[in-house]
Design a protein around this nucleic acid. Sequence first.
DNA 1: CTAGGGTTAG
Length: 545
Amino acid sequence: MCGSCDYLRLWSGISSNTFLTQPMTQLNVRLYQLLKHVRLLTQTKQIHAQIVFRSLGGSNNLIGELIRSYRTHGKLKSVRKVFSEYPSLPPTFLWNLVIQAYSKTSFTEESLYLFKEMLLYGGRHSLAVPDDYTFTFTITACSRQRTLLAFGQNCHTMVIKHGYDSDVCVGNALVSMYVVYSRTVSAQKVFDEMPQRDTITWTSLVKGYAMNGNMPQAEKLFIKMPDRNEVSWAVMIAGYVGHEMYNDALRCFNDMLAEGNLEPNEAIFVSVLSACAHLGQISQGKWIHFYIDKNGVPKSSNIATSLIDMYAKCGKIDCAKQVFDETDRRDLLTWTSLISGLSMHGLGREALQMFDEMLAKGIKPDNVTLVSILNACSHSGQVEEGIAIFYNMERLWGISPKIEHFGCLIDLLSRANRLEDAFKAVKTMDMDPDVIIWRALLSACRVHGNAGLAERIIHHVIKAGDGGGEGHLLLSNLYASLGQWENVRRIRESKIEKEDISTPGCSYIEIDSVVHEFLAADKLHPRIAEINLKLNEVMKRISLD
DNA sequence: CTAGGGTTAG
């Protein structure tokens, strides 16, 4: 039955006067049971009131359960208050609960502060000595921030001194912490010295190698590990996706299905759909969509978002829209993926319409939504509207423009041939513009044939030392586009040392079950002549309006 | 009476 029915049944025994005839321990147990069953914050508060009213604040189990209940509601202030009102020195168990409560929040320093306080008391009272749980939570707290490695290493030392290094959970927390700080060697060392390991230990280390770009080593461990569960497969597949090894991600996913003993979980679907999107593998994507529907996988916001993104990137915007329409719990991510899909398909007006609908539903955009909507404005010629959104985003939604938003603004201003304004906007940015910004500005100069401004911009770039040292390359490209080959040669000889050997841009699309691969400046496709013919036709039609 | 490992979008 539902929690609230249990709640009513249990509560009725306490609210009446019957409690007076029962011994205190009975009441203790009853409130404890009650706390375990309640779901609502108000119920927790009522029980808390009873505990205070009946002076039961010294009961460990009861206070522990109360802390746990407040924590599940995210009420950290209440957690802290209950803890601080404990009538004597709290036992280790209660310290652990409070340290744990902060360990996965954005205030993990609070866990460390409590841990230090605990050590202070622990020196004088054997009641509050850290144990294996304390170390597990504290080390976990160190892995949630970027700057707590030193503290974590201190904990590691204490762990060894107290002899907790043989504990699997403590060891796992350590491996995972070193992985977060990209200390693969340390992670491997802890792993090697652990007397026993489980699936979590192996998975953490696999993640460590995958995160640091060593996929061969990750693969080797993955094959070697005695047991694999859903999370292990998720780590492996996400590792491939993170390194743009999309075909390997799909192969890995199919291996998992072939083994047949595990069901893919949400994280796996999200990663695999992302791989399909990058490869333009609509058939595999559709198959996964079908699989999700057939197996009754809950259409969470994450799943819906990934499906929408996959269909949009595979060129099936109608399917993307359909998934969106069939999703009943739409959140910011779902809306954003549809808006960005519409924008990518050049359906700027429709994107703006959806944006308005989203705002009307009381959903606040984030920086990704705003990039999409600014792009949509620029692709549908709604220049003034886009500029207005840019200059009001801070006031309306509290999002200060980041470099990617400036990129959109440059695009908007350029389309309106307001190049001087664009240059001015870049100069007033409170961050260093990157090469992408400069390139966007320069290509706008080229489109509008404004060579004078382009030259001024480039000299500004060189003087300011911006563009990651690429200023001279930009200048040489500009001279090349102007046909001033003498200048190109001069710059290339004096300022540019080696040729750019970056890998060429690459894209995929699946048509009639065949995946086509294209490289930038590709001449190798078997039907390149037809493709170029079509491309010319498209370009002609674009330039008509 | 409390642990430790997982994903995405421009």
